[in-house]
Structures are given as structure tokens and as C-alpha cells.
């Protein structure tokens, strides 16, 4: 539909000026950069799945394999990768829970719940799940 607009209004005059979007359009604006960082967090989500499956395989293979896995995680490169991954995953969690109330409308007795309450519920659930998981892992 927009292809026809290029030549409208201007008759015989030269075409309207169209600005090309630069390849790295997201580096020049803080909010766009944060958006791309949020999207890139997904790569570290995928890395975590690989990491988790390696852990599961090691534990199922026996005590020696588990010990080797723990030694491997202390390797500076693996450790650095996991620190970066943790930062990105935290960015994902915080942005996800902050945006949730914008996309979700919860009504109680015909009245819309305030967005702050919905965000708070999400952060609360995050705290509870984290505590339960840590308690199960640490025994």
C-alpha cells in the first residue's frame, strides 16, 4: 500500500526523500540499545539450557563426572561466560516482569487491577520460586 505514496503529492517534482535505516540503528539511542540487549539475552537463555543438560548428564553419569563438571565450571573462561550470562538473564527477568502489567489486564469485580500490583505479584513469584529452587538444590 505504501509503494504508491512515494510519487503522490509531488507531481513532476523529484521523489520525496527517504532516509535509509543504518544497519546498527540501535547503537545510537539508549532505549534501542537496551532493547537489543534484552533480545540478545535469549542467546544466554539457550546457553543455560546447554549448561543445565551438561549438569544433568554429569550427575546421572556418577560422582566422578559430577566432580569433573564442578571443576570445569571453575575454569576462568566458563566462569566469565556464566557471569555474563547471569547478567543478561537478570536483564531478561527484570524487563519481562516490568512489561507484564502492560500486556496483561486483570480485572477483579469489574475493576482493573493497578499495574504496579501485577508487577509486584510477578516479582513476588520470582522470589518464592528462587527460594524454593535454592532450598531443593542445597537440601
Amino acid at each position: 500500500m505504501s509503494d504508491t505514496t512515494a510519487t503522490s503529492h509531488v507531481g513532476n517534482q523529484p521523489r520525496p526523500y527517504r532516509r535509509r535505516v543504518p544497519i546498527l540503528w540501535w547503537v545510537r539511542r539508549r532505549s534501542y540499545l537496551l532493547f537489543v540487549a534484552r533480545e540478545v539475552s535469549s542467546v544466554f537463555v539457550a546457553w543455560f539450557v546447554v549448561f543445565l543438560l551438561l549438569l544433568v548428564r554429569a550427575v546421572l553419569s556418577g560422582e566422578d563426572a559430577y566432580r569433573r563438571f564442578l571443576d570445569w565450571t571453575a575454569n576462568p573462561f566458563v566462569l566469565a561466560l556464566n557471569v555474563v550470562a547471569l547478567l543478561f538473564v537478570l536483564l531478561h527477568a527484570v524487563t519481562w516482569f516490568n512489561l507484564a502489567p502492560q500486556a496483561m489486564v486483570v480485572k477483579v469485580r469489574g475493576r482493573r487491577l493497578p499495574p504496579v500490583l501485577i508487577a509486584a505479584a510477578h516479582f513476588g513469584a520470582w522470589a518464592v520460586v528462587s527460594a524454593v529452587v535454592a532450598w531443593i538444590v542445597l537440601g
Binding site: V83, A93, W126
Partner: peptide, 14 residues
């Protein structure tokens, strides 16, 4: 991912 990964990665990764 937001609920499960941060705690597991913090424990086992860091």
C-alpha cells in the same frame, strides 16, 4: 526462563 534460570545459573554457574 525469568522464574527458573537466574537462581540456577547463580548457584551452579557463579
Amino acid at each position: 526462563a525469568a522464574l527458573m534460570i537466574p537462581v540456577l545459573l547463580a548457584l551452579f554457574g557463579v
